[in-house]
């Protein structure tokens, strides 16, 4: 699966499960299970059953109020015939395809910028993190105003350089780009994680590169990015999971419009579950999404052997 799975530490000999385990392997198994036991307990108590139940619901008609009725694969058949389902998948893919890579590039760039030794850095860092902490109820109105085609600041700036700005949130072709741009304002969270990751890069590496005559971009490409790759990997996976489940802004700011152009998967799922009382249908949607995310995650994990570099494994 991941690089770490393939690798077997020479000092720790894990035999195949059929053979007798070495003493050290037994101790490791016991310790490993002990350390993960809090999560195991939580999973068994609060996650496993809801998981299985939602899987069961996906094969039923279930309106939450009365008991579920088994209908086999009906929900899935109906889903594949539902144009809004396909629309919501397309919208979600579009969003993911742009927001995840952009988020990573901006996040890393910002973190590099904020890791410089410059006076007042604490203040700068706070400023860049601020958009992430402004409550959505407060910021949603601001977005509407910023993206306003007529009076909005963004189109005002575009107008100043002679470009006629698009309709953004009111134009079906531009509503998703608007949400993607909006998302970049919230890159502060990922930036924090990159910043924390940058602290782990040993100073000596830069020093020896300096002696070898490396210039700044070489240091970034050959030292910073590889050393940061475990954290980039983390943000990539979490970014994928997050954008496949993108919901809040679409719910509050555009509520799916215009012309269903921001009807994202989770929004349509939510409406089915809580507005139209199709919990079974929604569960089927959820499990399709689950499989989709799982497949993409596994692909990323597979690829990670080639580009994620764990200092702990050398």
């Amino acid at each position: 699966m991941s690089r770490s799975s393939a690798e077997v530490r020479p000092s720790v000999q894990v035999r195949s499960s059929r053979g007798p385990m070495s003493k050290i392997a037994k101790v490791n198994l016991r310790n490993g299970l002990l350390f993960v036991s809090p999560w195991l307990a939580g999973f068994a108590a609060f996650s496993l059953l809801p998981f299985l139940l939602s899987l069961y619901y996906s094969f039923t008609t279930y309106d939450v109020v009365s008991s579920p009725v088994w209908v086999g694969v009906d929900n899935f058949v109906q889903l594949f015939k539902d144009p809004l389902f396909w629309k919501s998948i397309t919208n979600t893919m579009y969003y993911t395809l742009f927001s995840v890579p952009l988020g990573i590039v901006f996040g890393v760039a910002l973190a590099l910028l904020l890791n410089m030794k410059v006076r007042g850095m604490a203040l700068y860092r706070t400023i860049f993190y601020l958009p992430s902490i402004v409550p959505v109820v407060a910021s949603s109105v601001l977005w509407l105003w910023l993206f306003d085609p007529q009076f909005g600041l963004i189109n005002g700036l575009l107008d100043a350089i002679g470009i006629e700005g698009p309709g953004w949130l009111v134009d079906p072709a531009w509503s998703k780009p608007a949400l993607i741009v909006m998302g970049l304002w919230g890159v502060g969270g990922a930036m924090i994680i990159y910043l924390a990751g940058l602290q782990d890069i040993p100073q000596e590496m830069y020093e020896s590169a300096q002696i070898d005559g490396a210039v700044w971009w070489q240091k970034i490409v050959y030292i910073t990015l590889p050393m940061l790759s475990p954290v980039i990997f983390f943000n990539l996976i979490m970014g994928l999971i997050g954008s496949f489940q993108y919901f809040t802004q679409a719910y509050i700011i555009t509520s799916g419009g215009p012309n269903d152009s921001t009807l994202f998967y989770s929004l349509y799922l939510y409406k089915n579950a809580f507005s139209y009382f199709h919990m079974g249908y929604a569960s089927a949607m959820a499990w399709i999404l689950f499989l989709l995310i799982m497949a993409v995650t596994l692909l990323v994990f597979k690829s990670s052997a080639r580009w994620v570099f764990y200092g702990g494994e050398r």
């Binding site: 809801p50 939602s54 989770s266 799922l269 929604a282 949607m285 959820a286 689950f290």
Partner: peptide
């Protein structure tokens, strides 16, 4: 990891 992949809307009620 997979526990994060199922939308919470459908596990909320259970």
């Amino acid at each position: 990891l997979s526990t994060m992949m199922l939308p919470s809307q459908v596990t909320m009620i259970p």
